[in-house]
Write a protein that binds this DNA or RNA. Structure first.
Length: 157
DNA sequence: GCCAACGTTGGC
DNA sequence: GCCAACGTTGGC
């Protein structure tokens, strides 16, 4: 099992959308960056994923979801009326992938970007690098646990 | 709203 | 293959 973080603008899709119906998978589509896509293709069922809220009031990690369905062709790339339509993608050789995710946990408090930047364990993680625009970020186990520990502290405190 | 940093495109 | 121009991301 591996660990990841995925960025989203909560107006589009937030941890609350997952929590609203925990049994219902949500399709993570619209990723149009090759590096992020390649990471999605590495995902396996059961992988744990931090949900990161960006471009909003409370920037940071809001909770955890898990991979319910591994990568498959993103249907939006074939939908002409979609903002994610890609005229250069073909059914024979689809360019973009989607995964399905289900709810695991919503943190009692969003773990802020400032807090993440202050964690020594995250020093090497692309998320906290200035100018990083990678929207799907791999986490090592120790990186994951460093962030998860903060949410556990919030629960007991 | 600003703007730095980044990825992609396309002319050459 | 280079690189300038462009569009987008995302924190502030």
């Amino acid at each position: 099992m591996r660990y990841w973080l995925m960025k989203t603008e909560p107006d589009e899709c937030s941890i609350d959308d997952f929590a609203a119906d925990p049994a219902k998978p949500i399709r993570w589509d619209g990723v149009r960056n090759y590096q992020a896509r390649n990471f999605m293709r590495e995902m396996e069922v059961g992988d744990q994923v931090f949900i990161y809220h960006s471009s909003c009031q409370q920037i940071g990690v809001a909770g955890v979801v898990e991979v319910q369905q591994a990568a498959y062709p993103d249907p939006a790339q074939f939908a002409e009326q979609s903002a994610y339509f890609d005229s250069k993608s073909t059914r024979e050789n689809p360019r973009w992938s989607a995964v399905d995710l289900t709810f695991v946990t919503k943190f009692s408090k969003v773990i802020s970007l400032a807090t993440l930047k202050a964690l020594p364990e995250l020093k090497a993680n692309p998320l906290v690098k200035k100018g990083s625009r990678l929207s799907v970020v791999p986490f090592t186990e120790s990186e994951w646990q460093a962030v998860n520990n903060i949410s556990n502290l919030a629960k007991s405190g």
